[in-house]
Simulated scan of single mutants.
Amino acid sequence: MSAHVDAKALADADLAAHLAEVAGRILLEVRSSGLFSAKALGKAGDQTANQFLVHALREARPDDGLLSEEEKDNAERLGKSRVWIVDPVDGTREYGEERADWAVHVGLAIDGKPAIGAVALPGLDLTGTGAGTVLRTDRVQPLPPAPEKLRMVVSRTRPAKEAVAVAEGLDAELVPMGSAGAKAMAVILGQADIYLHSGGQYEWDSMAPVAVAQAHGLHCSRIDGSPLVYNQQDVYLPDLLICRPEHAEQVLSLVRALDQAA
């Protein structure tokens, strides 16, 4: 029997990391049960992990707002300073295909800013413990040395044309990958240097990854250089740049040049 965790007593960063890790384990159990067809697995995993996260957050932080991809939106969150923003399965296709590039996002926005975040990569076990990998805002690791040739992570199914054009301008290698969280964490882990996305996203796709990336010293912004603001009435947040800080201005300049040429 597992020990009881007093969630209300946990610091926000510990709570985010614990919830992301447990949700990841739940998702692995759902997948390994063998009860679901490939078509049904994504929905089953999404809904199961979502119920855990929603109930746990309402128990642990009853006064905070909550926004989840899998929950009906609520106007109550707009009047809250503290709002948890979660994505139970980021990269549903990759989850169903038993790939490693999917994630669980648990983040806390405070006054619209990405303050606390945890991104679990249950399929990527860097520690060898079988518990997957969780990157978080309060446990920062040094960025690996930059390689000679730049690498840019892009969608493995529909790379954004702006990202492809910027990669050509930088002579960067394209690295196809699944979920937004996996792409963002790839920059922290040294698997890539730039993540540029312009194909449409929502707040839950980027909030926790941005919080973690910023804590690790990465540049995070919209692709026009403006800040990323969360807990908005319209949760559509279509574009994103996460990169090593030394590449930010060059990437933003290339994007501006593309806009001017359009």
Rank of each mutant, 00 (worst) to 15 (best):
A49G: 14
D73N: 15
I26N: 05
K80S: 10
K80N: 12
L28K: 13
E76S: 14
S81A: 11
D90A: 06
S32Q: 12
I85P: 10
D46A: 02
S37F: 01
V86D: 02
H55T: 01
F36L: 06
D64M: 05
N74M: 15
L66E: 06
A38V: 08
E59G: 00
R82A: 09
Q47T: 07
W84N: 06
D73M: 09
H55I: 00
S33F: 02
G42T: 09
N74D: 15
V83H: 08
K39G: 04
V89S: 03
A60I: 00
D90Q: 05
L53C: 03
P62W: 02
A75Q: 15
W84L: 03
L67V: 14
V30G: 05
D64I: 01
S68Y: 07
K72V: 14
L78F: 14
L66W: 09
E69P: 10
S81R: 07
K80P: 10
V54E: 14
L53F: 03
K43E: 11
L53P: 02
R25Q: 12
A40M: 11
R61T: 04
G24R: 02
A49P: 08
V89D: 05
A75C: 08
E69Q: 12
Q51R: 07
R82N: 11
K80G: 13
D73T: 14
E76L: 14
V83T: 06
